[in-house]
Structure formats: structure tokens, C-alpha cells
Simulated scan of single mutants.
Amino acid sequence: MKEDLQSSFDILLNKLSDWGSAFVENLPNIVLAVAVLLAAYFLARYTSKGVSKLVAKRVPQKSITNLISNLTTVVVVLFGLFLALSILDLNDALMSLLTGAGVAGLVVGLALQGALSNTISGVVLSFRKNIRIGDWIETNGFAGEVVKINLNNFIIKEADNNKVIIPNKTILENPLKNFTLTNKMRVVLGCGVGYESDLDFVENLTKKTVKEAIDQVKSMDDVEFYFEEFGGSSINFIIRFYITSESAIEKLRAKNTVIKALKKAFDKEGINIPFPIRTLEFNTGLKVNSKEFAEALSTN
């Protein structure tokens, strides 16, 4: 029993002695590896700050700036870690680490495919010059002002002050209309007048009214006027003119102004804006005996 304990104790001492000798032999490499890790840590901090400032000049979204800054930190630290492992001659551990990281990355990527797709789309949207915070856009059936571009979603504020959250992937995959990219916007408005109206007078009055109501319309020639059809109750026409604006709300305001001005002008000149009517014709040519008709009603 004592011999077994002594043998085990000797083996332990030999192991400790071998480890001590290996530590002393590899002490320069260990010191160098630790120095590399420390250098990578401080380099990652300074690199992260520099990249953050550089990205912030081009991307207003703080979330995107933080993401790129953190990715830079991870890349620099991982590079320092791999270099330190190579200095310690731990190639097997390095290969195992790379293999495990690759498998883990594949599993995570498959599990979070939708979330990663939205994140990548958010980064792409943040660097697009034709979509910026404050722009008035229309996409996926919604229209409003872009208030935020996050990593996972796109937030717009509609004219009624409601906010719509749209996945970034959906924005990239569907058409998008950006009203802010051009400073001219065409306003189209339809109306109708009675059949008794003087159409030439209606056209001239309409153009004059639009010119006086909208400051951006400099002359009557800037107003396009077209009669469209003989409607059921009126002769219908449309007017078109341009305004200088980067927001769709100005288009609604222009319509509102012109509608009120046209109503006042037409009322002043006695021009009728008919509403839909229906005429019932009872003169069918049939002769009805009032006495027989009364008897039929009484029996029923």
C-alpha cells in the first residue's frame, strides 16, 4: 500500500517537474503571447473609436455605428487571440477553435436566418444615399416620414402621426417611392360642372383661380386643364399643376387650398357643381283603371 502511494506521489512530482520545466522553457513565448493579447485589446479599443467616428460621419443611425464598431473590436481581438495561440505553438487548439467557431456560426446562421437577413438589410439601407432619415417615402402600402433605420426594422411616421414598423428585408425587396429626392411634385385634382355651363369660361376661371390660390403657380399656362368625359350628372375635368415641395403633406395642403378656392369662385359665378342624381320616368304609356287599381289594393 505504501509502495503504491509512494509510486503515485513520484509520478505526480515528475509531472509537476515536467510542467515546471515546460513553463520555464516556454516562458518567453508565454510572455510574448500575453503581450500580443494586451496589444490586441488596446488596439481594438482605439480602432473601434476611430471606426465609430468615421462611420458616424456617413451613417446617422447610432445602432449601425455601434454594430460596426463592435464588429471591428471582435475582429481585432480574435486576430490577437489566434496570433497568441500560434506563438504558443497550440496549432491543434487553434484548429479546434476555428472548427468549433465555424460549426457554431453555421448553426446560429440557420436558426436566425430571418433576423440576420433584416440586420444585413439594415446595414445596406443605412449606407444608401437615396434613403435618409427625414425623407418622405411610400412603400409596401404605407407613406410617411422616415424617422429611424434600426438593425432589424424601418420606422416611418404617417401623416396621421401613427408610426409604421417595417422589416428591413421587406424594404429592399419591394419598390420604394421617395418624394424627397425631387423638389417638384405634381398635384392632380378632378371636378365636374353642370351641362348648362359655358365650358370655355369654366376653363379660364379654373386656371385663374388656381394661379391666384397657389403662389408657386406663376401663370395660367402652368395649369393643365382637360375635360375628360360626359358624366352621369356633370361634365368632368381634371387640372394638373406643379408645386415645389419635398413632403407629400404639401400636396394635400395644395389640394385643400384649390378645392376651397374653386368652390368660392364657382359659387360667385353661379356655376353648378352637380352631385349624382337619378331621374325616374313614370310616363310609360300604360292605361290604368284607378277603380280597378284601388280594388286590387283593398283585396291585398
Rank of each mutant, 00 (worst) to 15 (best):
L90A: 14
V75S: 03
W136Y: 06
I156S: 01
A143Q: 12
G134E: 06
T65M: 10
L151Q: 10
A101E: 05
V74I: 07
V103C: 04
N150D: 06
L112G: 09
N130P: 05
L81R: 05
N91G: 07
L125D: 02
N140M: 13
V103I: 14
N174V: 00
T99C: 11
V107W: 11
A104L: 15
K129A: 09
Q113A: 07
G134T: 01
N70E: 04
I87R: 13
Q113E: 11
G109K: 10
Q113W: 13
V147P: 00
K177A: 12
N70L: 10
N183F: 04
I165G: 03
K163D: 10
N168M: 06
L67H: 00
N118G: 02
E158N: 04
I64G: 05
G122F: 04
T182W: 04
I87W: 15
I156M: 04
V76S: 07
D92G: 09
S121A: 14
G80V: 05
V124E: 14
I171L: 12
N162H: 06
V124D: 11
L83W: 13
V123K: 07
K157Y: 02
L112M: 14
L110P: 08
T73P: 00
T180K: 04
F82H: 13
V76E: 12
L151H: 00
N66K: 05
V146Q: 04
N118P: 09
A115S: 13
I64F: 04
N118T: 03
K177G: 00
R132P: 00
L88Y: 05
N140P: 10
V123N: 02
L81E: 10
L106F: 15
T170I: 14
I166T: 09
D92H: 09
A143P: 04
A159G: 02
V77H: 07
M185Q: 13
F82E: 15
N118W: 02
F79M: 13
D160W: 06
L85Q: 13
E158T: 06
V146I: 07
E173T: 04
I165P: 04
K148P: 06
L172C: 09
F142L: 05
M185I: 15
V77K: 06
L181Q: 05
L116W: 11
S86Y: 15
F179R: 07
A115M: 14
E145D: 03
N174Q: 05
K184T: 11
K148Y: 08
L85Y: 15
Q113D: 13
F142T: 08
K169I: 00
G144H: 02
F79S: 10
N118M: 03
N150L: 08
L67D: 00
N70Y: 04
I166C: 09
S126D: 10
V147R: 04
V108Y: 15
I64A: 07
S126C: 03
K148Q: 12
P175D: 08
L83C: 08
A104D: 06
E173F: 00
T180D: 01
V123F: 08
M185R: 11
F154V: 00
N70C: 02
N118R: 00
L98C: 14
G134A: 01
F142N: 07
N130R: 13
